[in-house]
Design a protein around this nucleic acid. Structure first.
Length: 580
RNA sequence: GCGCCUGUAGCUCAGCUGGAAGAGCAACGCCCUUCUAAGGCGUGUGUCAGGGGUUCGAAUCCCUUCAGGCGUACCA
């Protein structure tokens, strides 16, 4: 069944065809002048001249016909030939009653599998505020795809196998050289508790990184340790196991707070046993070859605008790097899941890497020809100087610090103490951060401003939650049970109709957000819908409305808004508290 | 050097498959004995970085200049 907008598009097409005007793509869009109409058609300007009309004449002809339609209350011409359309209330209400059907319509048939890789926290590096983006965006895209019927498998893909591991081990050895892990001839039992805490690791890694930059010998040692770790030196491996587990603790805590979770908690190291056979296979089949001591795959194409460097399978010292593990990881995922699409949510500085990776796996035929590999890049969160945060040298606010800041703001704001306060505070804090993050366009960089991330008023997470809690609260207060079964009536109340007008857009918003993989579209919509609801709420007495049928309609609208908000917030991985 | 991205209100940003310049914050004013004021309503602000072009119509597409950011095989 076609929706209201498609219906009016078809009608306009018929009207134009009757005038012997050929058009095949009539588009009716939201009106950007609310005082003139609800929707608008802009096509007549382009057609008029060709068919011997002035824009206004043709627009007027269209309007005259449209006005005769039962769906339409009014249609008028404005400016140089804009056709503004206002629907009858009953048409809007009918459309809103088809909400579920509309959502089902945009769902994909079952059996389409997507593998999504996001998060990518690194061992020994504390999560800083910039890391929230991959987690928030990835989680949101995963849920959005699932909402639309896709089968989605997610993996956190810990950064636990590259050179930074060698650096950390070298760093620990500098501090505690007497630990048995470093003695190649040690035969006894290794300790089972990490000799370093996650706090220690967050210091050890940046220091080692700085030292490696200044001290060539130390850098070479790190490389050697990395190679030996990857090739099974027991002491290093045992130590690595311990500090990886230790390092993950605060990360998992942060993910938990953000309502982010994965189907798989694997890492770069997971595919280690696949690397040697993979390299052999690539060389045997002459996909890869040796160049300057390293093993590479040519991935350049003749029509490249830029020189695309070869893809590195192994470094010249024989060690694996991120390109190695990314490729082997695809092999591993392909064998187990064989998805139709691979999604990588990673910042846009890695674009070239993914271009190379995707070409390399296609060239090696590790995925089918029609398997899609897509990098959903996101912009970096920059400091006030406009430059991206750097973590290796430290100095950027950690995610946990930011979380503490927001929680403090919210605790101060929360009215009177009560049960579950801490839980509610956490929910609101999480919503505050996530909404602030996701409101930004995915692809563009933006400046991190702590005040904005902690803001509780205006276009914020708490605003949306507050609206939802309000709507739920009034339903509860009515003590009526079957509110979901109540009927929306055609009531002469502009604020009420405005909410309905916004509510019918939800399925289209989902579709657009998915097409563009743009969660900020959902954020914007939540704000607009909530704002119209608050306007309605502030000027309409609901519970004290004497006309019971009207009252029930109003309650039903509260119910609808609450459900849409909950539905969309759930995609953003934002929970709704019972009270605020 | 080459490639990609960005430049919109005082600030932070939407809008970019062409269609009537937007939001939040900040400022000022109004609205709680009445359903949650984390709320509602109102007021002001713009050579959409500059210059060309295409078009009935350009913040949006094309060219160009300027400014900033990122990337450019052994970090991720």
């Amino acid at each position: 069944m076609i929706n209201l907008i498609e219906e009016v598009e078809n009608k306009i097409q018929s009207i134009l065809n009757e005038l012997n005007i050929q058009v095949d793509n009539v588009k009716v869009v939201e009106c950007n002048r609310a005082e003139l109409g609800q929707y608008q058609y802009n096509g007549v300007m382009a057609l008029a001249k060709k068919y011997g009309y002035t824009s206004q004449e043709l627009a007027q002809l269209v309007c005259d016909k449209l006005k005769q339609d039962e769906l339409i209350k009014d249609a008028n011409v404005a400016g140089v030939g804009f056709v503004n359309i206002t629907f009858n209330n009953s048409a809007l209400i009918n459309q809103l009653n088809r909400h579920k059907e509309e959502v089902d319509k945009i769902c994909t048939p079952k059996g389409h599998k997507i593998f999504i890789d996001y998060g990518g926290p690194n061992v020994a590096k504390t999560l800083h505020v910039g890391h929230l983006r991959s987690a928030d965006i990835g989680e949101g895209l995963k849920r959005l795809a699932r909402k639309l019927g896709y089968e989605v498998i997610s993996d956190v893909h810990f950064g636990d196998w590259g050179r930074q591991m060698g650096m950390v081990i070298a760093g620990i050895e500098e501090r505690m050289p007497d630990l048995p892990f470093f003695d190649e001839n040690y035969k006894g039992e290794y300790p089972t508790i990490s000799p370093v805490s996650s706090e220690d690791l967050e210091k050890i890694y940046p220091l080692a990184n700085i030292k490696a930059k200044e001290d060539e010998e130390f850098l070479n040692k790190c490389r050697k340790i990395t190679y030996e770790l990857q090739n099974g030196r027991e002491g290093y491996y045992k130590l690595w196991k311990l500090f990886v587990a230790e390092s993950m603790r605060p990360v998992m805590k942060t993910y938990d707070f953000l309502n982010v979770s994965f189907d798989l908690y694997e890492g770069e190291s997971t595919c280690n046993e696949l690397i040697a056979p993979m390299v052999k296979d690539l060389i045997d089949r002459k996909v890869a070859y040796e160049s300057q001591g390293a093993v590479v795959i040519d991935v350049a194409k003749d029509d490249d605008k830029v020189e695309v460097p070869p893809f590195l399978v192994l470094k010249s010292d024989g060690a694996a790097m991120y390109s190695t593990t990314d490729m082997a990881t695809i092999l591993s995922r392909q064998r187990r899941f064989e998805p139709n699409e691979y999604w990588y949510v990673a910042d846009n500085r890695q674009s070239l890497h993914f271009l190379q990776l995707f070409r390399a796996v296609k060239k090696a035929q590790y995925v089918k020809d029609d398997t899609q590999l897509i990098h959903f890049a996101f912009g970096t969160m920059n400091g006030k100087d406009g430059k991206p945060f750097k973590t290796r040298d430290g100095g950027v606010m950690s995610a946990l610090t930011l979380i503490d800041n927001v929680k403090t703001e919210i605790r101060n704001k929360m009215s009177n103490g009560g049960e579950n306060d801490e839980e509610i505070c956490d929910i609101i804090s999480s919503a505050t951060l996530k909404f602030a993050d996701l409101s930004n366009n995915r692809e563009t960089d933006f400046i991190f401003d702590i005040d904005k991330f902690c803001a509780l008023e205006g276009k914020t997470g708490p605003y949306i939650l507050y609206t939802t809690v309000r709507a739920n609260s009034i339903i509860k207060k009515s003590q009526l049970t079957n509110v979901d079964k109540f009927e929306l009536l055609d009531i002469d109340n502009k604020a009420y109709i405005d909410v309905i007008l916004n509510a019918i857009k939800a399925p289209m918003v989902l579709q657009k957000a998915f097409e563009q993989k743009a969660l900020n579209i959902i954020c914007d919509y939540l704000f607009v819908l909530s704002n119209s609801f608050n306007n309605f709420y502030s000027q309409t007495k609901i519970l004290t409305e004497s006309d019971k049928k009207k009252r029930d309609s109003y309650l039903k609208l509260c119910y609808i808004v609450s459900k849409i908000n909950e539905e969309l917030l759930d995609i953003l991985a934002i929970k709704v508290p019972d009270r605020m």
